[in-house]
């Protein structure tokens, strides 16, 4: 019943919001003094509160980068934890300004759901995890016919799962939960043989299981999951700001700018660096965006470049220890490619 009421209120909000925070999201944000950012309810590495209750993670740091670019303050941001199912309604109704919540960029979300994706902060793919102690013979996803699979509602995961088993002529038994914690505890309790989600998510989930060592992630990747921040249709300026905040992060890594050498790089007369950091005489790249010319400086000063964010949250310096893989810069054989700042 509560759910119903909540959904009702949600759609009532969509229905009656006087003007769906349309034209000037940036003005609204400046007026209220913070960015309202939709994040995950607790996925280690992407967005989860730490021991002191501060939000951390790759998706969280992206929001902090936005706050830094606008307010020169990475803390001028408030987080709304959203379940997979509620996230789009929250963005559409204006409850959040940006959705940075391991959300896969797909055509229907881009069109029918009225979202605009600003880039891909993490290239992922869907995988499977099983309990190797209970099922020692399972080495491949193709052996999973007849298995019971735990999955979260309202995700691309749910759809890819159906496609994969159908394409391989296998049967399965889905158990679909709405809440993340419920999927996790059901899998941990042995309700399912298999847990499926984005591979990064599997590693994160595994850390929180009763005995993480018992579980293995199977080698197959069954889908493309480009995860990135999204905004509502109808405000091009705000889309541009989110987009170029992301590109600034990647360009900073490409040009080797980080928190430690920022001062020194600002003295450089390399024209590319001068455009990125806004030190160019009479430059107006940042102001054209609606921000200040030093917006990239603000970003790097507070949160570092893309590589820093990656390593700190999901890479070598984190418990997840995920390698850069396809998320390396394009110059190093990966897919991260910063559009030119000029």
């Amino acid at each position: 019943m509560k759910k119903l009421v909540k959904a009702l209120l949600g759609s009532a909000v969509v229905a009656v919001m006087a003007a769906p925070a349309s034209a000037a999201t940036l003005d609204d944000i400046k007026a209220k003094g913070h960015v309202q950012c939709g994040v995950n309810t607790g996925l280690i590495g992407f967005s989860a509160p730490d021991d002191d209750g501060n939000w951390t993670g790759l998706d969280v740091d992206f929001c902090r980068a936005l706050a830094a670019a606008i307010f020169d303050d990475p803390d001028a941001v408030q987080f709304s934890p959203l379940s997979a199912k509620d996230r789009f309604t929250a963005l559409q109704s204006g409850e959040v300004d940006v959705l940075s919540r391991n959300t896969t960029w797909t055509i229907s979300r881009d069109t029918a759901l009225g979202l605009n994706f600003a880039g891909v902060t993490y290239y992922d793919g869907q995988g499977f995890m099983v309990n190797a102690k209970n099922l020692p013979d399972i080495k491949s996803a193709l052996q999973l016919s007849g298995a019971t699979v735990c999955v979260q509602a309202g995700t691309t995961t749910e759809l890819n799962l159906a496609d994969y088993f159908k394409a391989n002529n296998m049967e399965y038994n889905p158990v679909v939960f709405e809440k993340f914690e419920e999927v996790n505890s059901a899998y941990d309790a042995g309700r399912c043989d298999v847990y499926t989600t984005d591979q990064s998510g599997l590693y994160a989930v595994r850390l929180n299981l009763a005995s993480p060592g018992d579980h293995i992630v199977l080698p197959e990747i069954i889908s493309k999951e480009p995860l990135g921040p999204a905004v509502r249709h109808g405000d091009d300026q705000w889309l541009d700001i989110v987009k170029w905040t992301y590109y600034a992060l990647v360009n900073a890594e490409e040009l080797g700018v980080n928190k430690d050498n920022l001062e020194e790089k600002m003295q450089s007369d390399n024209p590319e660096l001068r455009r990125l950091l806004g030190t160019e005489e009479g430059g107006k790249l940042g102001t054209d965006l609606g921000l200040t010319n030093d917006f990239a400086v603000r970003i790097v000063k507070h949160v570092g470049n893309y590589g820093d964010i990656f390593e700190r949250n999901v890479g070598a310096e984190s418990p997840l220890k995920i390698s850069r893989g396809i998320n390396a810069l394009w110059t190093k054989g990966g897919l991260q490619y910063g559009m030119p700042i000029r």
Binding site: S11, A15, K85, F88
Partner: peptide, 14 residues
């Protein structure tokens, strides 16, 4: 709920 989320048609589903 899943239908709502996949299609975005909140009002209709509600």
């Amino acid at each position: 709920g899943t239908t709502l989320n996949q299609t975005g048609q909140a009002i209709e589903v509600v």
